[in-house]
Amino acid sequence: MTGFLARRLANYVLLCLAATFLAFALGSLTFSPLGQLQGRNPAPPASVIAAKRAELHLDEPIPARFVAWMGGVVHGDFGSTITGQPITDELGARAGVSLRLFALGTVLGIAVGVLVGVASAIRQYKASDYAATLFSFLVLSTPVFLIGTLLKFGGLRLNEAAGSTVLYYTGEFSPGFQGGWWAALADRLSHLVLPTLAIALSQIALYSRYQRSAMLDVLGSDFLRTAQAKGLTRRRALFKHGLRTALIPMATLFAFGFGLLITGGVFTERIFGWYGMGDWFIYGVQQNDTNIVATVTLFVAVLVLFSGWLSDVLYAALDPRIRL
């Protein structure tokens, strides 16, 4: 058993390493970090460029650079950006921003998604079912950047109508905010609403679709019939026996939904000016900064694998058939 755990953990570490190496190598191959320097007008002297070149170890082979970088990571040093800032300094704050956004989006997405899905299934082919279906199709067909932008303008209109700023759409809190704890919380909340909605909407759409079909599967099941034959009313059988069983397949969906969440997070952070990992990634690509890109990739890989593991644990918790 410990052998199995160790093998599984080793595979996770290997996958993280391979994924990070992939990002690192691809970045190193395609990026031209000296481009900006070379493009300056007047052109900097060759010695400056050569110095930068040496500073970024661009003459060493990519695997060697990766090993050197990874060696630092093991000791908590994620290297520095092209401009020389240590990445580690910024990492904690940015990771925190992203994690807050993801956690809220996931919890809201699952909770509302499951509710909407169950309601749709039970009231199949009723107006509410059609409305929910249409909503999720519409959301799943609209790119996050469009949803985000629309929400932003919605917020703007709302503020105009209210005559004051009800909902903020830039940043996590008002810069230089002064006030008590409650006021600070209110300020944060009014910053939180739109980005959280932007990220949760697609999660709600996804989970509600799957919960609906899982619930429909259960509706025709033999054990539900048995429960009714025992004397439970249809409604009671549905909630006690149906819903509990229909939640099981949601556990596997969780890992998949998470991948969607991360991509959505990139857009959301950018649009609403949250300085999280996604925002950093885009910045890294635009700056041709391999270290930033590799760091974000490692962060994402760890999160994805963690969500995969969590999804397995959830599955086992929900389904006695596969418990240990």
Partner: peptide
């Protein structure tokens, strides 16, 4: 699957 496709292609975009 560990890295979303979006990220990989973004990294490759300069190419």
């Amino acid at each position: 699957l560990v890295i979303p496709a979006f990220l990989i292609i973004a990294i490759l975009s300069p190419a």
